[in-house]
Every structure is written in C-alpha cells, then in structure tokens.
C-alpha cells in the first residue's frame, strides 16, 4: 500500500476522507431540505447539479472515489485490527471505557454502505441511465416528482430512516475523531467536539424528517 502502509498514515487518510464526506453530506442535506421548503428551488438545484460539467465530471467521480476509499480502508483496518488480537478475551467490558459508536464503526459503516447501494439504485442509476444511456431530454422540473415517488413505499422510507440512525452513530464518533487523527487536540477541541456531536444528531435527524415528510405528504394522484 506504499505510503499508506504506516498506521498513522492510514489513520490520517481515513480522517481526511471522512471529513470530505461529512462536508459533502452537509451539501446534500441543504439541497434535500429545499425539497421540503420549495419544490421549485429543489428542481433548480437538482438540475444544476445534474447538468453542470464540473459537478458531473470532476466532483462526482472524486466523491465516488472518496466513498470507495473510505470503506475499503475501513474494512482493511478492521481486518488488521482483528488480527492484532488473535486470542480474544473471555470477558471484555468495552462499555466501561468507550462508547458503542466508537467500538462499532464497522457495523454502522457497513449499514451505511448497504444503504448507499440502495440509494444508488434508487436515484443515481436511473439518473445516469436517463442522461447518458437513453439520452433523454433535460426536463427541469422532473426531480421533485421523482423524489416524492420514491418515498411512497413505507419499506423504503423505513430502510432510509434506519440507515440515518446508524449514520448518527457513525458521525457521533467519526467526525470528532477525525480531528484527533490529524493531530488537532487543544483548548478549542471541546467546542469543536460540541459542534461535531450536534452535527451528528441534526443532519441525520434532518434526513429522517425529509424522508418522513415526503412519505406522509404524497403528491395528489
């Protein structure tokens, strides 16, 4: 793995890719939130994101690579860390010294990964087919209707909400932890941690709110 062979290099890479994804999440959330406030704004923003060359051909691939890097690295780390304790304890009280979220990043991470699979299948794949395979005409106001249709199903809405709860746990540990990983631990850390914890709760809660909002406010047929 070259420069990523050292444990601290991996740690920093994990933190930086994580921070990048946290930043992306805020942007994604902002656009989604507009769907609750004003469908037209949502359509405009979605159209811009979906047709802008910079977004489509630079930012989108970077994002996808970022996601892939983050989870591949997470899995590699998990395997190495399990190997570091070949014989496990008969009695191990992790809850006495650490949070569930911090000890189970692999579980929350894998749930989020599974969610991303569903999410890609729901939105990204149809979008790519629409634009680049079928090469249909750009219709500027289709996004909102497509979005609301997706949340008709209670099963899908439920799965989305479940994934967001796990995202909460993942962010609860991961966001604050990434600053420690890049070496940031000083008198400002407490305030920063407060912010990261707030973010960890509010953003996923907001996503849950949006999903439920569209589920219960279906379009008139």
């Amino acid at each position: 793995m070259g420069i990523l062979s050292a444990s601290i290099a991996k740690k920093v890479a994990m933190a930086l890719s994580g921070l990048f994804l946290v930043f992306f999440l805020a942007q994604h959330f902002t656009i989604n939130l507009s769907s609750v406030i004003d469908p037209e704004t949502f359509n405009n923003w979605s159209h811009f994101m979906g047709t802008n060359g910079l977004v489509q051909f630079v930012l989108q691939p970077v994002l996808i690579l970022g996601v892939i890097f983050h989870f591949v690295m997470g899995i590699v780390l998990e395997i190495q860390n399990r190997n570091a304790r070949a014989i496990s304890y008969k009695s191990y009280k992790g809850s006495k010294n650490s949070t569930w979220a911090s000890r189970n990043m692999i579980i929350s991470g894998l749930v989020i990964l599974a969610f991303l699979g569903l999410h890609f299948y729901d939105f990204w794949v149809p979008e790519i087919v629409y634009k680049y395979v079928d090469v249909k005409e750009a219709v500027e106001d289709r996004y909102f209707i497509e979005l609301v249709h997706k949340f008709e199903s209670p099963v899908r809405t439920g799965l989305y909400c479940l994934a967001f709860v796990l995202l909460m746990f993942h962010l609860w540990h991961g966001f604050a932890s990434s600053f420690q990983s890049v070496g940031f631990n000083n008198k400002y850390s407490k305030a920063l941690q407060g912010f990261t914890k707030l973010y960890a709760i509010l953003i996923p809660a907001g996503f849950i709110f949006i999903a439920l909002y569209h589920h219960f406010n279906q379009l008139p047929h």
Partner: peptide, 26 residues
C-alpha cells in the same frame, strides 16, 4: 493494531496518560 480513537486506553491507563499525546504524535 491501528488506533481508531475509542479512548479506552486513556480511561484504563493507571497513570492517566492523555489522548492529547496521541494527537501530538500524529
């Protein structure tokens, strides 16, 4: 293994060695 910042070490350390040291080493 690799550190994932669970903080268990700091809690269990008999000498109270702080996680700040890990950030410093990073």
């Amino acid at each position: 293994g690799n550190c994932t910042n669970t903080g268990a070490c700091e809690i269990e350390c008999p000498k109270g060695i702080s996680l700040e040291n890990i950030a410093r080493m990073n």
